[in-house]
Design a protein around this nucleic acid. Sequence first.
DNA 1: GCCCATTGAATGACCGTTCATTCAATATAA
DNA 2: TTATATTGAATGAACGGTCATTCAATGGGC
Lengths: 192, 192
Amino acid sequence: MARPDKRSDIVGAALQIIAEQGFHGAPMAMIADKAGVAAGTIYCYFESKDILIKELYREIEGKMLEALREDYQTERPIRERFLHLGTRLLKYFVAHPLDFKYMEQFHNSPYGAALRRGRFAKESNVSHLPYPELFELGVAQQVIKDLPEVVLFALAFGPMITLTRDHILGFIELDDPLIEKTIAACWDGIKR
Amino acid sequence: MARPDKRSDIVGAALQIIAEQGFHGAPMAMIADKAGVAAGTIYCYFESKDILIKELYREIEGKMLEALREDYQTERPIRERFLHLGTRLLKYFVAHPLDFKYMEQFHNSPYGAALRRGRFAKESNVSHLPYPELFELGVAQQVIKDLPEVVLFALAFGPMITLTRDHILGFIELDDPLIEKTIAACWDGIKR
DNA sequence: GCCCATTGAATGACCGTTCATTCAATATAA
DNA sequence: TTATATTGAATGAACGGTCATTCAATGGGC
């Protein structure tokens, strides 16, 4: 009976195909094929394509948050914490381009819309980024501009997302020094 | 025989449905229905769904660039020109949310990937934003950080895109003062 | 009466999902 | 130990539904 963990073969195949071709470019038959199983087998592990997609999202999100929290020190100055999180995030994206592409696909789809709505309505037991607290604190300490959280978020994240996409598309080579310069520039955008 | 310009009825219906539901949530039959024509009629004006989609993109891009260039004065200081373009762009997005959503759908799809590839390879006769020149000049005058054009682009555009999405989703109300504060913060990100 | 824009039912391709069937591995009986 | 029964993971052909596209029929304008 073939490979020991078909489940992760399936998840891996789904990640690769969906990241590269989008949800509609990833028929179950194709995922099954790449995973080396039959189409029906996927349904032994996942109730539906929908559930496979959401599960995969949760797995990636978990890994990302773990990477972010590693070495994160709550007692350091705001600026340093921001730089830490930013560089971590950008480095994670660069190291895991498929994860990034998958998350983009997810967010730019009905799944992402539902997620956002849930988060906004605070129905979310969803694991949150450490950012909101950091911004709130920074504003209170008058280190960060007094702008709505959503705006600060956009100023900090927007560039990372755009830039990661450019990196993956090969328009630029994001090495460590450039990542640090970029995150520093993001800080200039939000700092007072 | 019904309305004088079925073509623009079709384009309008396609814009609305695709912007709100994505390409796969916009069957030709549904577009036809909303436009008040039969499915077959669309093919009198557009060879295929593909071509309809690309044409619609070009129309929107044209309107956007026009809005950007309006009142744009090449002889003003770099900073003011940047603020002008930024606020114009953000205001255009806020005033035309369907256009913004459509462009997002387009960019996050195989169409967008093809477009980017084309632009990068400079095969493009495609109309360009006035940004590259502005950044180049700013760097030369030592007003803007000495970072690759792609990075500056991300620092300036990333926040606008993220924020527009949040505005459209209702997470924040982007009025004129807030738009100006935001663009000013973007400037802080790229200025020396 | 002729032309041509318009119509919408029909076509064929594609896709997610189902389920009857297979068969290697394991348990049970002798 | 050997023969037999049971299990359930895995399979993949088949189903039902959706969708872009086609084209023969229609009817309004000249």
